[in-house]
Simulated scan of single mutants.
Amino acid sequence: MKIKNRIVLGFSLILSVLLVWYLFVKECDYCISFEIKTSTGTVFQGIQEWSNVQLKNDKERYTILEKRNFDFIRQEMVKGKTKMEYNWEMKYVNDSTTKVNVGIKELNHSIYNRLTAPFFKTPFKEEQIKKIVDFRNGLDNFLKNFKVKIKGEVTSQEAFVAYINIKCVLQEKAQSLIMRDGDITGFLRIHNIKIIGRPYIEIVNWDLDKEKLVFNYCFPINKNTQIIEDSIVKFKTLKAVKGLGASYFGSYRTSDRAWFALRDYAKENGYELENTPLERYLANPFDGGDELTWEAQIVIPFKKK
């Protein structure tokens, strides 16, 4: 066989393999990428909240098939006879930017979409571009509602506290505080125990996979206070914690966005964090006012560097 024929045959085999991979092996029909100025975890939470809105507004039902470490989520979307898969991958770029890659696959028309989407403005392609652009714009608008400032290494203050234990999913942290606030403040008021500082929440366990929290809702009191035995309200010393710190400004419903920013910062700077954030709320949401002036101080302990 002549050298020219071998080269042609070799290229033909390579093209055949690539074509088979593209049509039958490649995970998505079409991929859309964009960058956004926030943490990977904030994008992750935004996807889940956006999916709930899509169900309400467009009757699109999203089911999570797989998720990982707040930087990957795979969903199936069903609307009538249409079935889609969305693979969202969030990549840390720097302490203020995340790159998002969205792989999209239509389960009933996959091969057709792969043949047409790269070259033509098909309804599939136009609809997916519009959908992801709308998601990005919605997330951009949401990001205007809070700010996070990374402080680096910090140490919290020791405090003697009265506290109650709360269990909830991550997304319901603020609602759980509101619902249980009267349990502890009422107890302190009845027993004439004076609150002498702003409240804390001490995360005891953060299950990243299930997005569940166990935490203590704490109010600083005088360390000489007589301890009163109670089945709900307990007392202890909240020890000083050394870790990575941040200031969060905004509604306390989404103060966990500072946790995600600190996780990204830790990865970039070689820290290994515990899953036990400590938050201290410096404003009282019951007083109202501009949410962007509500500050929370966040510390997440690190294991090592």
Rank of each mutant, 00 (worst) to 15 (best):
L23Q: 07
L9M: 07
S247V: 07
M179Y: 13
D58Q: 08
V161I: 12
K194L: 10
V78H: 14
T98M: 07
S255G: 10
F70N: 11
D207K: 15
R136M: 02
A246D: 03
S231N: 02
A266L: 15
I104R: 00
Q175L: 06
G152P: 09
I132L: 03
A246N: 09
Q128A: 09
E60A: 09
E211P: 10
S16N: 11
V17A: 14
K149R: 14
T276C: 13
N52H: 11
T155W: 01
P123M: 03
N101E: 12
Y30G: 04
P285K: 14
H191G: 04
E27G: 12
Y271G: 13
N224K: 13
V133M: 08
N113W: 05
N137G: 12
F235Y: 09
Y62M: 14
F24R: 00
D183L: 02
A159D: 10
S96R: 09
E76L: 04
Y252K: 05
V78L: 12
L177R: 03
C168A: 08
A283N: 10
L282Y: 10
L139I: 15
Q297E: 14
K56M: 06
V25C: 05
Y86Q: 05
L278W: 09
I73V: 06
E85D: 02
E153F: 01
K130Q: 10
R180Y: 13
S96P: 08
P277M: 05
I14Y: 02
F160P: 07
F146P: 07
Y112A: 13
Q226N: 11
V102W: 03
V8N: 00
V204G: 12
K147E: 15
N192A: 12
Y22M: 03
L273T: 13
A266F: 15
S12H: 03
K79W: 04
E35I: 00
K121V: 15
R136W: 04
R280V: 10
R114K: 14
L188M: 14
F72T: 10
L273P: 15
T293G: 02
I298G: 03
W21Q: 01
L65P: 02
Q128N: 07
L65G: 09
L19G: 09
Y271L: 08
F44G: 11
I184C: 04
K173I: 00
N141G: 07
R198I: 08
I166K: 10
P285D: 04
Q54H: 01
K236Q: 00
I36G: 02
I221V: 05
F24M: 01
N5M: 08
L143N: 15
Y86V: 00
D230M: 01
N94V: 12
A117C: 06
D95S: 05
K81F: 06
A162G: 04
F235K: 02
I203A: 10
N165W: 01
A283W: 06
Q297S: 08
V214Y: 15
P285L: 13
I232G: 00
W21S: 03
M77K: 12
D134E: 13
K173W: 06
K59I: 01
D287T: 14
K144C: 08
L143W: 08
E49F: 05
